[in-house]
Computed example of a mutant assay.
Amino acid sequence: MSEPWKDEPGRTSHGRRGPLLNTDPGVSAIVDNALALNASFAAALGCRTHEDHGVAAIDAECPGHRRAIVVAPCLDTAEAVAGLRSFFSPKGAWVLEDPFGSFDGESAGLVRADTTVLFRYDPRPGEVLDPGLTLRRVDDRTDLEIAERIVAEGFEQPELAAAPPGSLYPRTILDDSAVSILLAVVAGEPAATVMSYHDGRSTGLYWGATLHTMRRRGLCGGLIKALMNEHPHTPTLGSSGAMSQSRFREFGYRELGPSTWWLWPGDG
Rank of each mutant, 00 (worst) to 15 (best):
M243I: 12
E250A: 10
Y169C: 01
T115E: 10
A42K: 03
G221F: 12
G18W: 03
A209T: 04
E3I: 09
P125R: 00
I173E: 05
G126I: 07
R48Y: 06
F119Q: 11
I173N: 02
L96H: 14
A39W: 00
W262V: 07
P25D: 06
R254G: 08
G132D: 11
T134D: 08
A161M: 04
H14Y: 12
A29T: 01
P170Y: 03
S28A: 09
W5I: 01
E61D: 15
L37E: 13
H212F: 10
T77A: 09
A56C: 06
E3C: 07
A113S: 13
R201C: 10
C74R: 07
R249H: 03
K225T: 02
T12Y: 15
T210E: 03
A57V: 12
R171G: 05
V138N: 01
I224E: 07
A29W: 00
R247A: 13
E230C: 10
L133T: 05
L237H: 11
S2T: 14
A191Q: 12
E79G: 01
L205V: 15
S102A: 04
V185I: 13
T23P: 00
V151F: 11
Y206E: 01
S102V: 00
T115W: 10
T193F: 05
A209W: 12
M1C: 13
D139N: 12
V185R: 10
E159I: 13
D175H: 12
I58Y: 15
L211Y: 07
D76L: 05
P158I: 02
A34G: 13
G46Y: 13
A93M: 14
R66D: 11
G64H: 08
G64P: 02
R120A: 14
D130Q: 08
